[in-house]
Design a protein around this nucleic acid. Structure first.
Length: 663
DNA sequence: ATGACCAATTGA
DNA sequence: CAATTGGTCATG
């Protein structure tokens, strides 16, 4: 008989069911294969979890209907991982398996060859680029020796990080083990794949990525499964890749929001890899140019150790950072909405090469700011963002109004400086490009934006404008970079505002030439802000540690476990009533969720409850907060409660553990 | 989800 | 008293 996980979307059926194995299927029905079974009167898909001699099910067993494919695509380590992830995130095994195993592609299965002859992996000699990092040489040596060290790695700037990663992977292969690398997006997959190919050869590397197409994706998956490829590189789902004898898991730019899975049960790559490293005894490398508070927590609890360059190396390799405030009075700079120091950096930098201007994404910041002091304008009644409604007849004075409570604010006055005029908070990339083009005639202006990203630019004189996250790489590095709208970024009422600003700034700074070669970064922001100081000092780990300590004091994540329940008001109440919550759990809310408003940017802040129209029994969100050590108990209690409610056919409630954004 | 079953509730 | 609705339970 076979123990089968049936793929039905109902939480309370998330357990194995036993089936008889008919004689003709006896060989094919191995653990890990996809099957089709009769369940509750209909044909459903399922997975064979294990074979066993006898069942403890009292009744007769129904036979398996069909083995979909003889390929055992669900390996025991990946099954164990999927179970752990389901438990950690209060989700079902079925949901996790949907993320972990790509859909079958029959033709790709047919085409894929059998196991290839064992190509001898290239064994790197010595620490290579890791000699630049304190504790780096030891880390690589332990990888090569078959050990399982775990590190939070602060990378040195420039394109070298892909080579650093490839070297660590090669060292792991040298110990006879495989490795996997997860990066935020396709551009980074391209880069890491290239570096890995150079280091260990293309035949050992499998690229795993959703927009590769079903056939190519499944083919790459099979190469790993069969051991033809030993290294997986890809985005999110790659965290579940069936790499054999896994020796190293790595995540790059761990603070990037792309690492949070948007589908149920919303696991984060960092957590998946942490569970996987523990389950499979693999080494772990959590890297980036910055450091999230979660990564700081991994160090704090002793799970991982820092790998970073010494102070002197950091100072020599990173560009110099200067802070500019808006107050400077140069008329040319003012017309450009750019502080004078920043303008000078652009001007001087252009004499030596390309200059990067990082702007805030269009529509990222709703509302307006004071024309004089540039502080974001807030509604005096509810602290909501103030907007200038458009669409009226031209010339007619428009009265500002609050985006939350809707009050008209014709007499708005800035509480800081007494100014009475408002301006749009963020200026579009195009407009800034035009203005800069006029200010520096004869200079080519290039724009990289979401719809048309530019992977790289040539080394010559050019102004390169980009929104955060899609900056092109300049061959030989940028002569200078200017980071605009810093204050607006920092003042977002988001727990991660500082962390996220620092991450974006460091990513831009990493593309600039070293200080020794005249590389300069100018950030336009409040010089007293902690994130700004961390950028100047080049100490993201220190920033994250401090941030973590602060959150611990306030009982906020990641120092506390958090869960959100989202759904119809009475269903959310029902789940809460059914849940046996661990001691010390605080219940916050419920807060009514505003109807999706296309005018408001997705990252925009959520209004407080008392600013919303009341009385509607719509969708609500409730937040549960428990001490960090009760995270598992919190997840289990919510999973049980959801199962009980689903048995009663209640409308579904979305449960999210440690959501990245609270809104 | 889907269906079976039992009990309470409603209607002639 | 039969028909209908609603809650509970099992699905191998």
């Amino acid at each position: 008989m076979a123990r089968v996980a049936v793929d039905v979307p109902v939480p309370h059926l998330d357990r194995p069911f036993d089936y008889a194995v008919p004689q003709p299927l006896a060989d094919a029905a191995r653990p890990g294969v996809r099957v089709r079974v009769r369940f509750a009167g209909q044909d459903v898909d399922g997975w064979i979890l294990e074979r066993a001699a006898a069942s403890d099910h009292p009744g007769p067993l129904v036979p398996l209907r069909r083995v979909v494919s003889p390929e055992p695509v669900l390996t025991p380590p990946v099954l164990a991982l999927a179970r752990a992830v389901a438990e950690r995130y209060a989700g079902t095994l079925g949901d996790v398996l949907r993320l972990a195993v790509p859909p079958r592609h029959a033709r790709a299965e047919q085409a894929a060859s059998g196991p290839a002859p064992d190509a001898p992996p290239a064994v790197p000699e010595g620490p290579g680029p890791w000699a630049d990092y304190a504790a780096g040489a030891a880390f690589v040596a332990r990888l090569a020796a078959g050990d399982a060290p775990r590190a939070v790695w602060t990378a040195l700037p420039g394109p070298r990080w892909t080579g650093d990663l490839a070297h660590a992977v090669a060292a792991t292969l040298g110990s006879g083990r495989g490795a996997l690398v997860v990066v935020p997006d396709r551009r980074d997959v391209d880069r890491v794949e290239a570096a890995l190919t150079a280091a260990v050869g293309a035949s050992l590397v499998a690229r795993l990525e959703a927009d590769l197409g079903p056939a190519a994706r499944y083919a790459a998956f099979l190469r790993l499964l069969r051991g033809t490829a030993r290294v997986a590189v890809g985005t999110r789902a790659c965290a579940f890749a069936p790499v054999r004898d896994l020796g190293l898991v790595a995540i790059w730019d761990e603070g990037d929001a792309q690492h949070a899975e948007p589908r149920s049960p919303y696991p984060h790559v960092r957590e998946v890899l942490r569970l996987r490293a523990d389950l499979e005894g693999a080494a772990a490398l959590v890297g980036g140019w910055s450091c999230s508070t979660e990564a700081a927590a991994l160090q704090e609890e002793g799970w991982a150790r820092p790998v970073a360059a010494d102070r002197g190396v950091v100072r020599a390799r990173w560009p110099r950072v200067a802070v500019a405030t808006d107050a400077d009075g140069d008329p040319a700079a003012r017309a450009l909405r750019m502080p004078h120091v920043a303008w000078r950096a652009v001007h001087d930098g252009l004499a030596r090469g390309p200059v990067l201007v990082q702007v805030v994404r269009t529509g990222y910041l709703p509302g307006t700011a004071c024309q004089t002091c540039r502080r974001p304008a807030r509604c005096p009644h509810c602290r909501g963002p103030v907007s200038l409604p458009g669409g009226g007849p031209p010339g007619e004075p428009r009265s500002p109004e609050c985006g939350w409570c809707g009050r008209s604010l014709p007499t708005w006055t800035c509480p800081t400086c007494g100014g009475r005029r408002l301006r749009a908070r963020a200026v579009g990339v195009e407009r800034t490009a035009e203005e800069l083009g006029r200010a520096f005639p004869g200079t080519p202006v290039v724009v990289s934006r979401a719809e048309r990203t530019l992977p790289r630019v040539p080394p010559g004189r050019a102004l390169v404008l980009a929104t955060a996250g899609i900056e092109p790489v300049a061959d030989g590095g940028y002569a200078a970079a200017v980071l605009l709208d810093g204050d607006a970024l920092l003042e977002r009422p988001d727990l991660r505002a500082g962390e996220e600003a620092l991450r974006r700034w460091r990513a831009a700074a990493a593309l600039v030439r070293p200080a020794a070669e005249g590389g300069l970064v100018v950030v336009s922001a409040d010089p007293s802000a902690v994130a700004v100081q961390a950028l100047v000092r080049g100490d993201p780990a220190g920033f994250a540690a401090r941030e973590l300590a602060e959150r611990a004091e306030l009982g906020l994540p990641p120092a506390a476990a958090l869960a959100t329940l989202t759904g119809p008001a009475d269903a959310v109440r029902g789940v809460l009533a059914a849940a046996v919550l661990p001691g010390g759990t605080a219940v916050l809310g419920p807060v009514p969720l505003d109807a999706p408003d296309p005018a408001r940017a997705p990252d925009a802040e959520a209004p407080p409850v008392d600013a919303l129209p009341l009385g509607e029994e719509g969708t609500v969100r409730m937040v549960l907060r428990a001490p960090a050590l009760h995270r598992t108990a919190l997840a289990r209690s919510l999973r049980d409660a959801v199962a009980v409610r689903s048995l009663r056919r209640d409308p579904p409630v979305r449960v999210q553990l440690d959501p990245r954004d609270l809104g």
